[in-house]
Write a protein that binds this DNA or RNA. Structure first.
Length: 556
RNA sequence: GCUGGAGUAGCUCAGUCGGUAGAGCGCAUCACUCGUAAUGAUGAGGUCGGGGGUUCGAUUCCCCCCUCCAGCUCCA
């Protein structure tokens, strides 16, 4: 089809494969049908894959003759003296292989998308077209995979955010989310829970300003390391910056008073709004925004308190994520090349993190050299509906800020010492965490989080007055309740409530009115039958108090 | 930021080979008074993302910009 196109690299990935191609004019989705029919022919012919070997020189000669600089570069970078390749029909390609004995084993495949990708992931190098596709041994498995993709689309938080009236974006504020009344209910419930959990764990809460003088950011190192992502302004002819992180402000609070080792560990939480100038192309719903709220905390302590403190935070994250039924993956990142501090400090800090993880028996992935320049860190990753992984909680040890801000405390010996500092977040960014929850629950929040917890549905307008009584009684009981007094049919009102993922629908007709009851319908369990209004109130209040997930509803 | 794609009613989308647009849902009004996922009728609602150009005439063709989508790069 495109004899001049140059193949670059094409590995298998989870659920499929991609191939980077240098083609001019660029490939588009309109080319997919033609490519797929070529693939179809190849599959039907059932060519065997034949393994072959070249010496490095032979391989280089082959691709230099073909005028393919990408393969030449790949071969040059290979350490092996012999290069394996695979051949089917007249097509030869470098491959460690083997994947399959013959082309006929591919029973079902589909090209999914095409997008640009930098050669070898380097933005200074040419951009190629990357074609993504997927293949399965049977049509049935392909169909199942495509069904999962469609389900993921249904759960997409951007779509549900609109449908459920939770938040919106506007061209006037790219990357700056607007939270609607219903979205704020969820966020506020999350924060109420958060504050209670922090109170239990002896945290204080502080708040620092959004805008602070440039001098402060020069002192903290942000001016040197993070300027490109910051917003600036002027006040009375002095230079100021909008904070991209909360730590410098937190350091000033620490320095405002004298500290004793007796007060350690000193845990100061801050629900801090930060602004970061992210590149336009990386913005992604609530997952990647330009203003977000970190459920931050800075913990000041002696170095020998680090390990216990880290264990405490790991338990904290686990306890919080369990409430939502969220699964997570843990990563430990160690000292990067460009970093500050002594080897001794890094060893102490890294082993404290490692020991904490080992003590908890937590499996983790090691990211050698991926830590922050000021210290190692433990990250907690949660996957979205398309299996993309997002960092949420993180625990970071910091040796830089205590130095830069000359922090100290009075030790048992009466002398001044340098404290250790941990930065940590539990939700991470509340916006991102909300997005994770929307996709995790598919919009069907557990009752304690649901913007509307129950809708009263009169069967006809003869029961409107009773429906209002029921609504008022539930409102008095502290529930988020609405009465649907529209002149739609009962079936229609049920559908409307189901569509909005309201946990409980309370159907009231003459029978219920006469007995002071409600007919309870749960959005997943269906019709639960009639019960006295008070019985329903205690049931739902218990469910809310327990923060029960939907699949636990039956047990109540 | 880069490559490619898209932007038409509140939402989801159709349409115009250049003569200023249509559906479903939603909304409003009226009728219906209904027992667990859609009762019917009528009506309102759009400077076709923004600016410039070509043209007698641009939502449609061309250029620039904005925003969104997929991916890449980035992500203390």
């Amino acid at each position: 089809m495109r004899p001049e196109a140059k193949l670059a690299i094409g590995p298998p990935i989870e659920d499929g494969f991609y191939y980077d191609i240098d083609a001019d004019p660029p490939l588009t989705e309109e080319d997919f049908a033609a490519i797929e029919s070529e693939m179809e022919k190849t599959v039907r012919a059932d060519y065997p894959f034949e393994r072959g070997e070249w010496s490095k020189d032979e391989a280089l000669a082959h691709y230099e003759r073909a005028g393919n600089p990408y393969k030449v570069e790949l071969i040059r970078d290979l350490d092996d003296g012999t290069i394996t390749y695979y051949r089917h029909d007249d097509f030869v390609d470098l491959c460690r292989g083997p994947h399959l004995p013959s082309t006929g084993k591919i029973k079902a495949f589909k090209l999914l998308s095409v997008a640009g990708a930098y050669w070898r992931g380097d933005e200074r190098r040419p951009m190629l077209q990357r074609i993504y596709g997927t293949a399965f041994p049977s049509q049935k498995e392909l169909d199942e995979h495509l069904r999962l993709l469609a389900e993921a689309e249904r759960r997409d938080h951007r779509k549900l955010g609109k449908q459920l009236d939770l938040f919106s974006f506007h061209p006037e504020g790219p990357g700056f989310p607007f939270f609607h009344a219903k979205g704020m209910i969820v966020l506020n419930q999350l924060m109420e829970f958060w504050r209670e959990e922090h109170r239990k764990r002896q945290y204080g809460e502080v708040r620092t300003p959004i805008i602070l003088e440039r001098k402060l950011w020069e002192q903290s190192g942000h001016w040197d390391h993070y300027k490109e992502n910051m917003y600036f302004t002027q006040i009375d002819e002095r230079d100021f910056a909008v904070k991209p992180m909360n730590c410098p402000g937190g350091m000033l609070i620490y320095k405002a008073t004298l500290h004793s080792y007796r007060d350690f560990p000193l845990r100061l939480a801050e629900v801090g709004t930060v602004h970061r100038h992210e590149k336009s192309g990386v913005l992604h719903g609530l997952f990647r925004v330009r203003v977000f709220t970190q459920d931050d905390a800075h913990i000041f302590m002696t170095p020998d308190q680090i390990q216990d403190e880290v264990i405490g935070i790991i338990d904290f994250v686990d306890a919080v994520y369990k409430v939502f039924g969220l699964e997570y993956a843990v990563e430990l990142s160690t000292r990067p090349e460009k970093s500050i501090g002594t080897d001794e400090m890094w060893d102490l800090a890294t082993s404290a993190l490692r020991n904490a993880l080992d003590t908890k028996g937590i499996a983790y992935k090691l990211n050698e050299g991926d830590g922050a320049f000021y210290g190692p860190k433990i990250d907690f990753h949660v996957r979205d509906c398309l299996k993309r992984s997002w960092q949420c909680a993180t625990i970071q040890l910091d040796f830089a800020m205590p130095e830069k801000f000359d922090l100290d405390y009075v030790g048992p010996d009466g002398n001044l010492h340098r404290p250790a500092v941990i930065h940590r977040v539990i939700y991470g960014a509340i916006e991102r965490f909300l997005a994770v929850l929307i996709e995790h629950f598919g919009g069907a929040f557990p009752t304690w989080l649901a913007p509307v917890q129950c809708v009263v549905i009169p069967i006809s307008d003869g029961q409107n007055a009773y429906a209002c009584q029921v609504r008022d009684r539930l409102f008095e009981a502290g529930l988020r309740v609405e009465a649907d007094l529209s002149d739609d049919t009962m079936k229609y009102k049920i559908r409307a409530a189901q569509t909005q993922q309201v946990p409980y629908m309370l159907v009231v007709g003459d029978r219920e009115r006469e007995s002071g009851a409600v007919s309870v319908r749960h959005r997943r369990k269906g019709d639960l039958g009639a019960m006295p209004l008070d019985a329903f109130v205690s049931r739902i209040q218990e469910e809310i108090a327990l923060k029960a997930l939907d699949d636990a509803v039956e047990a109540l």
